[in-house]
């Protein structure tokens, strides 16, 4: 159990129990907007891995075994005109999402990954990937990938899923 994960979950549950529905939505929105404003790590590609002092990651973002996809279930946006952290042209990124904690084999750190769906076009259809690590059933919305997360978007049509690094997870004690 990673502490940041736990923090997220506890906050969500606390809010769920104590707040009105509208308040809950607003609070989750706040959390997620907060998450969205955490600056993305200056991730370099494997090609730059040899440069000392620079963040690294390895693997193929169009492959289901790519490290960031540990908790994913959906079409990889990398195969749909987008990338692991961008949506394909003409789609809309859902601001509401589920998260996973994935280990980057290149630096041995665990990262919090936000699986923002890209919405507004029908299913991409390419690179369907289901790994589900750390996934939980619907009663844990923060960790469930079985929901159509095209929530808060103008169109509910699910197209593909990204895997965006939103933070470094605290190491387990």
């Amino acid at each position: 159990m990673k502490l940041l994960d736990k923090l997220f979950e506890q906050q969500t549950r606390h809010l769920a129990q104590r707040s009105s529905r509208r308040g809950m939505l607003k609070a989750i929105g706040g959390l997620l907007v907060g998450a969205g404003t955490i600056p993305l790590l200056p991730v370099a590609r494997a090609a730059a891995a040899d440069a000392p002092g620079r963040p690294t990651e390895k693997g193929d973002p169009a492959s289901c075994d790519y490290w960031r996809y540990c908790a994913i279930d959906g079409f990889l946006c990398s195969c749909c005109g987008g990338s692991e952290n961008t949506c394909p042209p003409g789609t809309e990124m859902s601001p509401v999402t589920w998260i996973g904690t994935c280990r980057n084999p290149a630096d041995g750190r665990n990262y919090v990954i936000s699986y923002n769906d890209c919405c507004g076009k029908s299913s991409c259809g390419a690179c369907l990937c289901q790994r589900d690590e750390g996934d939980r059933p619907l009663y844990r919305p923060d960790k469930t990938n079985d929901i159509n997360w095209c929530l808060g978007t103008t169109s509910l049509a699910y197209h593909c899923s990204t895997a965006i690094v939103v933070g470094v997870a605290f190491e387990a004690e």
């Binding site: 769920a16 104590r18 009105s20 529905r21 809950m24 619907l138 009663y139």
Partner: peptide
């Protein structure tokens, strides 16, 4: 709040999983 879905409970009610 905090609970999902709709399971049968009694004759005029339901339960949700939290």
């Amino acid at each position: 709040p905090g609970c999902v879905l709709v399971y049968p409970t009694g004759t005029r009610g339901f339960s949700s999983l939290c």
